[in-house]
């Protein structure tokens, strides 16, 4: 709150996806590891069918969007919830290799934390 007041504008900053400042290393890594990541058109079929998402917040469609925007923080915990069951793989109308997107995202976040990206 102090920080926010000092600079005035920072209050709204967290609400904003500042695309020019966002870090897209994770997106680049995931795209490299799983090129079909780019094919998602956000239909939500994966999230609809998801076994894990039935129990707790885990949403591959949202994860895909957030990674593209460089918004990694909300994913840290979510990415660990996937059961790799593969239902999403059978549902995806774009043929995204969904399970590998999750694996690549998890690996990217680990690498990011170790400054390896």
């Amino acid at each position: 709150m102090d920080q926010a007041n000092k600079f005035g504008f920072t209050i709204n900053r967290s609400r904003l996806i500042d695309y020019d400042r966002s870090d897209r290393k994770v997106r680049d890594y995931v795209t490299l590891m799983e090129p079909s990541f780019r094919l998602c058109f956000a239909c939500g079929g994966c999230a609809a069918t998801c076994t894990a998402g039935y129990h707790k917040s885990f949403n591959l469609r949202r994860m895909n969007t957030l990674i593209r925007r460089g918004e990694i923080e909300p994913l840290r915990e979510e990415v660990t919830r996937c059961m790799l069951c593969g239902k999403c793989l059978l549902v995806c109308p774009r043929g995204v290799n969904t399970r590998n997107v999750v694996a690549a995202a998890a690996a990217a976040i680990r690498k990011l934390d170790r400054n390896e990206l």
């Binding site: 239909c43 939500g44 079929g45 994966c46 999230a47 609809a48 069918t49 239902k87 549902v91 109308p93």
Partner: peptide
């Protein structure tokens, strides 16, 4: 209208 693909 609900935006989402029905999975099953």
């Amino acid at each position: 209208f609900i935006r989402g693909k029905v999975s099953e």
